[in-house]
Write a protein that binds this DNA or RNA. Structure first.
Lengths: 229, 229
DNA sequence: TAATGTGAAACACTTCACAGCG
DNA sequence: CGCTGTGAAGTGTTTCACATTA
């Protein structure tokens, strides 16, 4: 019923189920079968039933799932029935874009601390949050009780930042830096890595060249003839 | 040796191997064992050897792998020994951030077409690429021979855009929209979904509340007390 | 000798298929 | 009757362990 060892892959699917259910709920749909839900998401009905069975019995035989009940159930399982304060480390191009992104707020997360290295940015404000010197991380994070952090620093600094976050009590890291970070086993990391995603997609492409009339000739662009990862 | 059915999960690891090898190469290291490489990346030596074995024999017994040789080999396997032109659809906050991101260029990808819906943005230029009306997608993409596209539109438009991309000949999609898109089986999709990543991390957090002195009281913020996904 | 490449074993995840319930 | 929840079977992935080779 409850859970001796739930696969992480199951946990990673739950947010998709939740999002889909909430959209259905907004559309006024009241209940859904595993078949229907699976068709929307692109997974099998059996997988949905198995995934949900790790957490309890949410369905009614012959009827399917009551959408608000199931959505609330998943939300509780994921501990999303509260708001989590999040630290953001890095305030370059990427860090600023993340700081300004408002999509987390309606989804149980709020960036409530921003750390920058560049003195030029310290004191800036984003949505009422003041950008702080990164050297204060070890004081501010425990003081605010932050347990989740987003890394948006250059690859070379990512491991150092991760180590300091872990020392400050952070248990979960969303890593936008193009670097694998190593953390103790009580800390979870998710990588956001669009470059790797594109690079792996490339494998599946038909490899005939760009059309001959392409304006852009790779061989003319220094640094592109011999691409680096 | 060559490949009757290579698991996608293996393909998704190759960019990480490649990046790590190139970093070692830049550090002047000449060769590496599967043990070493695995330690850097956080995977087992056996996994690296098995993964590489799908594509050939890159190593030398007793010695390990010659770094430039292996990196070049992976690059060729992933078809990254050329530059791919990429279409970007969407020029809101997110689309603009992606358009300005320069990290793809040194990694075999260049955004060479940008499509926007908002007339206000059409005609804008980013790195010499002119923002075009999205209604021209079906003409421009085949004409330029683009096979990869990035979706950065709101969730409600994502499926429609995906359909039109597929109709235009796109074979690979990097999807930043928080929506699962369905595509024919000859098209590959990778999702970039930071919100889902955060939501799945939340599961693993100790759930004692924020510290009592937190400045931010969730219950006071409309729309946060009952979070939606 | 040190480390690869790979059968075979172990483990993990998905799907089948159906008993049982509303 | 329709659809869930779940043992059991099937598939896919990882790891073991070692023969092989530079």
């Amino acid at each position: 019923m409850s859970s001796p060892e739930i696969p992480d892959i199951v946990i990673r699917r739950l947010p998709i189920y939740l999002r889909t259910l909430r959209r259905m709920q907004d559309l006024g749909i009241e209940s859904v079968s595993s078949e229907d839900l699976g068709a929307h998401i692109g997974v099998t009905a059996a997988q949905i039933r198995r995934d949900l069975s790790y957490f309890g019995r949410f369905g009614k035989q012959g009827k399917g799932y009551d959408i608000p009940t199931l959505a609330d159930g998943i939300q509780r399982v994921l501990k999303l029935d509260r708001c989590w304060d999040v630290a953001l480390v890095g305030f370059g191009q990427l860090g600023r874009a993340i700081a300004h992104y408002r999509g987390f707020e309606s989804n149980s997360f709020r960036i409530t601390a921003i750390f920058a290295r560049n003195p030029e940015h310290i004191g800036d404000q984003v949505n009422g949050v003041v950008v702080t010197d990164e050297s204060t991380m070890e004081d501010v994070i425990p003081e605010m009780g932050l347990r989740i952090a987003i890394i948006a620093v250059p690859a070379d600094s990512a491991q150092e930042v991760a180590d300091r976050l872990v020392n400050s009590g952070v248990q979960a890291i969303l890593n936008y830096a193009p670097a694998i970070i190593r953390v103790p086993s009580h800390v979870r990391v998710r990588e956001i890595d669009p470059t790797s995603a594109l690079q792996s997609l490339s494998f599946y492409l038909d490899s005939e060249g760009q059309p001959p009339d392409s304006v852009f000739d790779t061989s003319m662009l220094p640094g592109l003839a011999e691409p680096r990862s």
